[in-house]
């Protein structure tokens, strides 16, 4: 859905910009709706990564996705991080920016992981404050992404989707709905993933992530190294049914196959988007969460 959280953009289906594909992109100039970049890879002073990004920006639409803002960390964000992020935002003109609904640093020490939050009212309040502050500083819409998780907390007072809804409502921000993460967490925490998709406020969904994962004996790991499985496509179909056509991004970060293979996997999403075009979304019909 085009909404204020994705700057009313109809981006279509994109893929993550990854180094193994650079040569293909620059030599073949494939038609791609948009690329998602990992902000941290370009929050540098100079050199090849920024030169490469500038070449991409000449020809493609780019949206920034971060991995280390840690909206849920109790310690304040690094001002240097925020400053560099804003510099990059000005360079890319990203219409919106996303990062994860998680934590990952304590007292300036970073785990570089997307650690889950306890779903408590205290965490709701602190996280929403942080999202609001970052959004105000960056002066562009911010969308928070639900993460895959492998642990749940004894302190939790609500479901994950209730927590997400409370945070985005209080922060007045968008959602990057990762339907693969919903599936992974649902399997790891034994809840119905469709209940999650149905509970999300559709009018706040700025973007959707799809991806593959790895199944182990006792848990599922979010590895982004496989094609999207059918149950995740089903969640995606339902999300699109509820939200309407929404900018969609395939993540593939490990054992990365050829550009064409990744792009073909991403473009499978188009059949759902086409199907939903013309049909009013659930959110459009009611103007509220379903």
């Amino acid at each position: 859905m085009q909404n204020r959280f994705n700057a009313f953009s109809n981006h279509g289906v994109g893929i993550g910009l990854r180094i193994p594909h650079y040569q293909h992109i620059f030599s073949r100039k494939p038609v791609v709706d948009w690329f998602e970049i990992i902000s941290e890879n370009f929050m540098i002073d100079a050199g090849r990564p920024l030169a490469t990004l500038d070449r991409i920006l000449e020809q493609y639409r780019v949206v920034q996705h971060g991995v280390s803002m840690y909206f849920g960390s109790v310690t304040a964000p690094d001002p240097e991080h925020l400053k560099r992020l804003k510099t990059l935002v000005r360079r890319t003109n990203t219409p919106w920016l996303s990062d994860h609904l998680c934590w990952g640093s304590v007292d300036g020490t970073y785990t570089h992981d997307l650690l889950p939050l306890p779903y408590t009212w205290e965490a709701v309040q602190r996280t929403a404050e942080r999202v609001r502050m970052v959004q105000d500083y960056l002066e562009i819409p911010v969308a928070v992404e639900n993460v895959s998780s492998y642990a749940a907390f004894t302190a939790s007072e609500m479901t994950e989707w209730e927590f997400l809804n409370e945070v985005v409502e209080r922060a007045d921000c968008g959602i990057l709905l990762d339907v693969n993460n919903i599936y992974v967490s649902a399997m790891n925490h034994e809840f119905n993933p469709m209940a999650y998709v149905n509970a999300v406020p559709a009018e706040r969904v700025a973007q959707i992530h799809i991806a593959g994962h790895s199944k182990y004996e006792k848990y599922i790991l979010d590895t982004h190294d496989h094609p999207v499985i059918d149950p995740v496509w089903e969640l995606y179909a339902r999300a699109i049914q509820r939200c309407g056509p929404t900018p969609t991004l395939l993540e593939w970060d490990d054992h990365i196959p050829s550009f064409d293979e990744v792009h073909a996997e991403a473009k499978k999403a188009e059949r759902y988007l086409r199907h939903s075009e013309g049909a009013p979304s659930s959110a459009a019909l009611t103007g509220a969460a379903q």
Binding site: D113, L115, A151, A152, F153, T154, H189, E190, K218
Partner: peptide, 25 residues
């Protein structure tokens, strides 16, 4: 003290996933 179990994994095993992920990364 802070991690809940599920039907397949103890709190220790769930925390261990993150412990391994950190070091691998």
């Amino acid at each position: 003290e802070f991690i809940a179990p599920n039907s397949r994994l103890t709190p220790f095993e769930r925390l261990e996933i993150y412990n391994r992920q950190y070091w691998y990364r």
